[in-house]
């Protein structure tokens, strides 16, 4: 077995006295889709915030490609190969769609070179165009991001993450607030991305999760209560009790 892309050990996160995440240990192999599920407030987004450097963990260690991430500032994560989307759409609303992705691509080259013209960096335009094509937004390049439909904004955020060419992609409820049509498109997009990247995904839509994932982690009150393939998770009695039983979307 090859070394895991990401390994977390005994990860925990407290907010004051409140324990949002506790004792999570797991490792993630390359090119797999792992879903993280759990009831509202289970700590899924907190888990993602820890994995993407937004919040330092209160306890535990994280290794990415064998490298200890302790003390790594958040902005380094994108450079190491970890990119993410947020539960609440997080883009540059006043910039054009193209510029949203272009400025993200620019983070990986010299930033403080005052004597260069930003417009002259045409390789950034190519990278942005490629990322927009990957999510199907080529035709909206010149639109101002805030005027896009909700589903397109979610896709734009994924393009922003993709342009970093991340090995690990964290998607926090990518279909949040989407109708069935948009959801279908997003599922197709994630399937396409999964071919060459490791994806961690928070979702509530059970059918989608069962169809997409190689593996499912279940969080409950900040603890990892189950970890297995979709069949194992479906038949896990505790998971059924705390989560699946109350979810109507689950057949």
């Amino acid at each position: 077995m090859s070394a895991p892309l990401l390994a977390v050990e005994n990860i925990g996160r407290r907010f004051g006295g409140f324990v949002a995440l506790e004792g999570v240990t797991a490792s993630f192999a390359s090119n797999k889709v792992t879903a993280v599920i759990g009831p509202n407030g289970a700590g899924k987004s907190t888990f993602f915030n820890v994995l993407s450097g937004v919040l330092p963990p209160s306890t535990g260690t994280m290794r990415f490609k064998g490298r200890d991430l302790a003390g790594t500032p958040q902005h380094r994560f994108a450079h190491l190969g970890i990119a993410r989307s947020y539960q609440i759409t997080n883009i540059f609303p006043e910039l054009s769609v193209h510029e949203n992705v272009r400025v993200a691509a620019q983070a990986f080259r010299s930033r403080y070179d005052i004597w260069r013209d930003r417009a002259a960096l045409t390789e950034l335009d190519d990278k942005a165009a490629a990322a927009l094509a990957a999510v199907g937004l080529t035709h909206r390049g010149s639109a101002t991001a805030k005027f896009l439909a909700h589903g397109q904004q979610r896709a734009l955020e994924i393009a922003i993450a993709l342009v970093a060419d991340p090995e690990l992609l964290l998607l926090d409820e990518p279909t949040a607030g989407m109708g069935p049509e948009e959801t279908k498109e997003m599922i197709a997009l994630i399937e396409k991305l999964a071919a060459e990247r490791t994806i961690l995904l928070v979702e509530h839509k059970m059918k989608m999760i069962l169809g997409l994932s190689d593996r499912i982690l279940v969080l409950h009150h900040g603890r990892l209560i189950a970890d297995g393939n979709p069949q194992q998770i479906q038949s896990d009695p505790e998971v059924r009790r705390v989560y699946l039983g109350q979810n109507d979307g689950y057949a």
């Binding site: 993407s52 937004v54 958040q74 902005h75 380094r76 994560f77 994108a78 450079h79 990119a83 993410r84 947020y86 997080n90 883009i91 540059f92 609303p93 006043e94 910039l95 510029e99 272009r102 400025v103 993200a104 620019q106 983070a107 990986f108 080259r109 010299s110 930033r111 403080y112 070179d113 005052i114 004597w115 260069r116 013209d117 930003r118 417009a119 960096l121 922003i160 970093a164």
Partner: peptide, 26 residues
Amino acid sequence: RILNSPFGSVIEAIRENETRARACGY
């Protein structure tokens, strides 16, 4: 010159959305 340089794009991005700029690697 500052505004036309790549640095100009970065400060603009920070003005628009600081958390996104940080997540992008800035």
